[in-house]
Computed example of a mutant assay.
Amino acid sequence: MSTDAPVALVTGASRGAGRGIARALGSHGCKVYVTGRSISRSETKNGTIQATADEVTAAGGRGIAVQCDHGDGEAVAALFAQIEHDEGRLDILVNNACAIQDALTEPGTFWEKPISLGRMIDVGVKSSYEASWHAAQIMVRQGSGLIAFTSAPGAVHYCLGPAYGAHKAGLDKLAADMAVDLDGTGVSAVSIWMGALATERLLGMIEADPVKYGHLADALETPDFTGHAIWALFNDPELKQLSGQAVIGAEMATRYGFTDANGKIPSSARDTHKVAPRENYKIIVR
């Protein structure tokens, strides 16, 4: 790797998991590009990419906010062109952007909810594919890099409906198949299962319906936790052995010896839900 500060891109980083991941990478000294659609507080009541970039810098790295709608292919291409022009490299891509809507957690079957929930497959799976395509152009040329996807146990069990499930399962499969093509290039692709996150959205859900969601309160991971997992993976000299796998963030903490902010390692979905990432067959058809 370069002796300069590693360059990372975290998509969908105005709030939630992306914000925490970017902040964590900043604490390890990374230069982090953070993307999202909202750059100023006047545009949204929620978080902004500029606020995230400021937190990255405060944590010890350097945060750079770039407004980007990951549903817009031209905007995404321009983003990567900017990174390549300004940095000449990209070490870590974190595919986190997703079109989450409040209706996702409301009661009802998929046909009773807005059809627009299906945009999670567009700004989620499709956008992650496109970002990875651009990142691979840079990383393969430099002979190194990590493409990470933020996934969850909903990839293998029903959770919040078929759009969410297809999104998470799709990310795991992108990592698996991209790793086949990336074999021998020095670039790895890994999907990371996050646990229940202490994000603004989930904390609000717990407060609004403690009967339904209150059991999650004692099992939450900080949004930063996955960022530390990504950093540990990036620095693993044996990372290629994990390329193509969906891994559980809590198990990566045990593997690499780090904890969450409370000094503890969260429980693994393998223990709490008795589920594990699917294994891909070794068959390759070209």
Rank of each mutant, 00 (worst) to 15 (best):
A198Q: 04
L197A: 11
G204W: 01
A189M: 08
R201E: 07
L197H: 06
G143C: 02
D181S: 11
S191N: 09
K168W: 05
S144K: 09
A189L: 10
G161Q: 06
L202M: 12
R201Q: 13
V180L: 13
G165I: 00
Y164I: 03
L171S: 04
C159S: 13
A175G: 15
D183I: 02
T199D: 00
D181F: 10
S144Q: 12
D177T: 11
K173N: 11
T150A: 10
L171H: 09
F149I: 00
D177L: 08
L182V: 08
R141D: 13
A175M: 04
G143T: 10
A148C: 06
L146P: 02
L203F: 00
D172I: 01
L197M: 13
R141N: 09
Q142W: 02
G186A: 06
V190M: 06
M194P: 00
E200I: 02
P162E: 05
G161I: 03
R201N: 10
Y158P: 09
S151F: 10
D172W: 09
L146S: 06
V187R: 02
M178N: 09
R141Y: 01
V180Y: 06
A175E: 05
G170W: 02
S144M: 01
G184F: 01
G170L: 07
I192T: 14
M205C: 02
R201S: 12
V156D: 07
I147V: 15
A166I: 15
R141P: 04
L202Q: 05
P162A: 14
S144P: 01
V190H: 09
L203D: 01
D172K: 01
E200S: 08
D183T: 15
S144A: 10
D183Q: 14
G195E: 05
A148F: 04
R141A: 14
V190C: 06
V156N: 07
Y158R: 11
T150P: 03
I147S: 09
A198K: 12
H157W: 12
D172V: 01
G186N: 04
G184N: 04
T199E: 10
I192P: 05
A166E: 02
H157V: 13
K168V: 02
K168Q: 07
A175R: 08
F149Y: 15
A176R: 04
C159L: 15
L160Q: 10
Q142K: 15
A189Y: 06
T199K: 07
S151P: 12
H167R: 15
L203H: 01
A163W: 14
S191M: 13
W193D: 08
P162I: 14
A166P: 00
D172R: 02
M178A: 03
D183L: 08
L160N: 13
D183P: 00
A179G: 15
G195W: 04
V187F: 07
A196K: 11
C159I: 04
T199M: 07
A166F: 14
K173Y: 06
A196T: 13
L160E: 12
L197C: 02
S151Y: 12
A196I: 13
L182M: 12
G195D: 09
F149Q: 03
T150F: 01
D172S: 11
H167N: 15
E200N: 11
V187H: 03
E200Y: 00
A196D: 10
S188L: 08
P153E: 11
G161A: 07
G154A: 14
D177W: 04
H167K: 15
L203V: 10
G143L: 06
G145S: 11
G161E: 03
G143Y: 10
Y164D: 08
